[in-house]
């Protein structure tokens, strides 16, 4: 089955090419955005199989760095409507299949 083989190759290609973090929406200042993005990447790579742990790590680190009341959602598919403090939201994709939403609201 050449078709499926090709499909697999394509998928691998896709995974390889699309592993970079892709910010979909953010209103953070430049410095904060970069830091948060790196943190998300680190967490998702560290806990590649456990989204809950990754979210926990991101939340705790963010609380430490930027003050309390951070919320993190990581998943492959979800819908959300959140109220966040202005300049404190980051919504990004990572690794080709994960969506990470980080926001602050006390």
């Amino acid at each position: 089955m050449a078709g499926t083989g090709e499909g697999k190759k394509e998928e691998a290609d896709y995974k390889r090419l699309h592993s970079f973090p892709l910010i979909r929406h953010t209103d953070m200042p430049e410095e904060m955005r970069v830091e948060t993005m790196e943190l998300c990447v680190t967490a998702c790579e560290k806990f590649a199989t456990n989204n809950e742990s990754a979210a926990k790590m991101i939340k705790e680190s963010m609380d430490k760095k930027f003050g309390s009341s951070w919320h993190v959602v990581i998943g492959e598919g979800f819908g959300f409507e959140v109220t966040h403090e202005v300049k404190n939201l980051l919504y990004m994709f990572f690794g080709g299949s994960l969506a990470v939403c980080v926001w602050k609201c006390s």
Binding site: R24, H25, D27, G75, G77, F78, G79, F80, E81, V82, T83, H84, E85, V86, L89, Y91, F93, A99, C101, W103, C105
Partner: peptide, 8 residues
């Protein structure tokens, strides 16, 4: 504060 919503 602002609200932000989306689905993925």
């Amino acid at each position: 504060r602002v609200t932000f919503s989306g689905s993925v």
